[in-house]
Simulated assay, not measured.
Amino acid sequence: MKEFFTFYPNKKAVERDSTIYLSKFILAPVISYSPETNFGFGTGAKYLFKFNGSGDETRVSNMPLSFQYTLNNQFIFYSGFEIFTNQEKWVIEGNIQFQNYPRLFYGLGRNSDEENEEQYDYYQVLVEPIFLKNVFAKYLFAGAGFRYNQIFETNVEANGILDTERPEGFDGSRSMGIEAAVLYDSRNNILNAQNGWYFEFTYGVYDDAFGSTQNFDLTRFDLRHYLDVSEKNDDILAFQAIGRFSRGDVPFNELSLFGSSEILRGYREGRFVDRDLLASQVEYRKTFKNSRWGAVAFVGAGDVYNDVSDFKLGDLRFNYGAGARFMVDKLERLNIRLDWGFGQGSNYLYLGIAEAF
């Protein structure tokens, strides 16, 4: 399976010079499933490479690309990339996305009722490159970038919550701003880490001076840690905590969403919506020796709220679940994953490629 879908663009150059990293272009048909999209069908690709002159001290750069059409009549084009220059002097990372997305909405706040369910359709263009330079210590980077997030051709249900309450930017918005970022990334593998830390902090300012339709700021962090707990089977214990906080005239589509295929699995994405989000999860990743197969078990908790003073540990909602893994590339540890997540009163299946975090 690996050889069938994997191509080597610089294979001849590597045959002449064994110090060059053998780049890989992994191309395959993609079948995915999540409660937000139903089944999705399309093409996925990952370009794994190093710049000439990079050795073992430089980790493999990852440029994924996917296009899918779903049974919910959505199309999704996405790339989330992380590129290391020679000797990791710079990291270039970010997201590019173009999609039309029917989304279910239940009302604002952590106590919205499921009976309020309505559909909200929109198109989205997202471009977010960040350029980070190595500073002070190995694995520590600092830099800046910009973020452009355009929501257009929106369609809301007549006399529904959105049509009645009309929150800021419900009928479309343009977020254009500059971001400052700090990154610490000591993971040994970007696609499926066995050890190391990852911490990213970004602070973005969006203003009409930059072309934004609303004036607000957005703060985000993502903290992860990976522990190799079994030398025999390379079993991994993985931790993640994320936060997302917005202030000002925050447009509707920049509010924080509770639930996704990556964190708080078991809740539909956007089941609860508010200005801020705090969430965490722990995952045990089991690898069966001399096999491409693996399994995971995970548990997590999180909440959305309007202000820091509203956050209470007693209000946390929990999730748990398990899943299976099939490794399509042993060298890069790239997995196909199938997860079954359970929330409070809900459970969903997720099928995709690469780990949740």
Rank of each mutant, 00 (worst) to 15 (best):
5 F>Y: 15
7 F>A: 11
7 F>N: 04
14 V>Y: 05
19 T>C: 07
20 I>K: 13
22 L>N: 15
29 P>M: 03
32 S>I: 08
33 Y>R: 00
37 T>V: 01
40 G>M: 02
42 G>Y: 05
42 G>H: 05
61 S>M: 06
69 Y>A: 10
70 T>C: 03
75 F>W: 14
87 Q>P: 10
96 I>D: 01
96 I>R: 04
99 Q>K: 08
100 N>F: 11
115 E>Q: 07
119 Q>R: 13
127 V>D: 00
133 K>T: 05
142 A>S: 08
147 R>M: 07
149 N>G: 00
152 F>C: 08
153 E>K: 13
154 T>L: 13
159 N>Q: 12
160 G>Q: 08
161 I>C: 14
161 I>L: 15
166 R>S: 10
170 F>D: 10
173 S>W: 07
176 M>P: 12
176 M>W: 02
179 E>M: 12
180 A>Q: 13
182 V>E: 01
185 D>Y: 08
189 N>S: 13
190 I>H: 03
196 G>V: 04
197 W>V: 00
197 W>I: 03
198 Y>H: 08
198 Y>A: 05
202 T>H: 01
204 G>S: 09
206 Y>C: 10
208 D>Y: 06
210 F>L: 14
211 G>R: 01
213 T>S: 15
214 Q>Y: 09
216 F>C: 09
219 T>L: 13
220 R>V: 06
222 D>P: 04
225 H>Y: 14
226 Y>E: 00
233 N>L: 11
235 D>W: 13
237 L>I: 11
240 Q>R: 15
241 A>W: 02
241 A>V: 12
243 G>S: 02
244 R>D: 06
246 S>N: 12
248 G>S: 03
249 D>I: 02
257 L>R: 07
259 G>T: 09
261 S>C: 01
261 S>L: 04
264 L>M: 15
265 R>T: 10
267 Y>T: 05
269 E>K: 06
270 G>K: 00
271 R>D: 10
274 D>W: 00
275 R>G: 09
276 D>V: 00
277 L>Y: 13
280 S>E: 00
285 R>S: 14
289 K>L: 07
291 S>R: 00
295 A>L: 12
295 A>I: 12
295 A>F: 09
298 F>M: 01
299 V>L: 07
301 A>P: 08
304 V>P: 11
305 Y>T: 04
318 F>H: 01
326 F>S: 08
333 R>S: 14
335 N>E: 03
339 D>G: 11
340 W>V: 15
341 G>D: 09
344 Q>R: 02
344 Q>Y: 00
345 G>I: 13
351 L>H: 01
355 E>S: 04
355 E>P: 12
356 A>D: 04
357 F>M: 01
